[in-house]
């Protein structure tokens, strides 16, 4: 499990020499599995609550023995718990269930192989763009706290943070894909297929998602930088006679960025879920798009798997953010010790 080894590495880096490293890893993993387990069990219950037989809902006009077959493979013939356990234990062994169709069953893993990298790429681009823009903006507006520049920027950011990303997506595609067609309106290419095209397809969706995030990141960072600027060590750094921008970037940014990076880490999970609409609008075959597709086509088993993956990502980043905080700010190590 890549994720688990990630946790291990992070813990080893930050808790070097601590005896409780192993305990923390185990604790985290248990939390992640319990939450994902309970959440998916809840979903399993929902599926069983569906009026009618999930098997015949998935495949309309299915022949009776086909329905029987589906029920057997998917475990729908067992009780809720048995069904859920079969699905959950299959997941652990890499069997992610099937899209059940009249023409035959397609493994969900085939879809995952394409959609997970797509979504991860998109989320990573969004984060990179958001951080690249919001960090300088946050630093400057905090440094100029209370000035006209700062006040105007704050108002603009507040407005931008309240505009839904789909609204921006529609406006952007009207202007940059239809009126002045400099970018493709929808579609996707993987970096392997055509790297230039890949980025062209990514510009509008990433921009639509990034704007709101830039606004909230800038606001978060600004608040923390304002607090940091009052610290003695900032005046101490200034008294060395180094330039203001060096003071901001080298001395102020890092102690002020815990909240920002924590919420960026938290955003990773929710972004994957939050991209559903954007991926649908731009026809990008990521996880969000597949979730929407599974819902519309009533592929409940695939849906359960997809949601579990999103929930896993969400919980994973949720329960490891304090480790991120730890890396940025060594003071938190002291507090724990």
């Amino acid at each position: 499990m890549g994720a688990a080894s990630f946790v291990v590495v992070m813990c080893l880096r930050t808790h070097r020499g601590h005896m409780d490293t192993l305990r923390i890893i185990v604790q985290r993993l248990v939390t992640i599995f319990v939450v994902v387990g309970v959440a998916t069990f809840f979903l399993a219950c929902l599926i069983r609550l569906l009026p009618g037989d999930p098997a015949s809902i998935m495949v309309s006009n299915a022949l009776p023995d086909q329905v029987l077959n589906i029920r057997r493979i998917s475990g729908l013939d067992k009780n809720v718990f048995g069904y859920w356990w079969q699905w959950f234990s299959n997941m652990m062994t890499g069997d992610f269930g099937y899209y059940y169709q009249a023409a035959g069953n397609n493994p969900v893993s085939d879809v995952l192989k394409r959609s997970i990298p797509t979504s991860i790429l998109m989320v990573v681009y969004v984060q990179i763009v958001a951080l690249l823009v919001s960090v300088p903006l946050g630093l400057v507006s905090a440094y100029k706290e209370g000035t006209r520049f700062d006040r105007i920027l704050q108002s603009i950011l507040f407005v931008l943070s309240s505009i839904p990303s789909f609204a921006l997506a529609l406006v952007f595609s009207l202007f940059f894909a239809l009126r002045w067609p400099i970018l493709p309106p929808l579609g996707y290419a993987t970096p392997g297929e055509n790297i230039v095209l890949h980025f062209k397809y990514m510009v509008l969706p990433v921009a639509s998602l990034a704007v709101g995030i830039i606004a909230s990141y800038t606001r978060l960072l600004r608040a923390d930088v304002i607090a940091t600027l009052k610290e003695d060590y900032v005046m101490m750094a200034m008294s060395k006679g180094i330039s203001n921008s060096r003071v901001l970037w080298k001395h102020v940014l890092r102690p002020s960025s815990t909240t920002l990076l924590t919420s960026a880490a938290l955003n990773m999970g929710s972004l994957i879920g939050g991209t559903i609409v954007i991926e649908t609008l731009f026809q990008i075959p990521g996880l969000g798009y597949e979730i929407a597709f599974a819902i519309v086509t009533r592929q409940v088993i695939a849906l359960q798997t997809l949601i579990a993956i999103v929930a896993f990502a969400y919980v994973f980043f949720n329960s490891t953010v304090d480790i991120v905080a730890n890396i940025i700010d060594p003071r938190t190590r002291e507090r724990r010790a």
Partner: peptide
Amino acid sequence: SIPNLVLSLA
């Protein structure tokens, strides 16, 4: 732990 749009979709 489930994004609110996904939860309402489900």
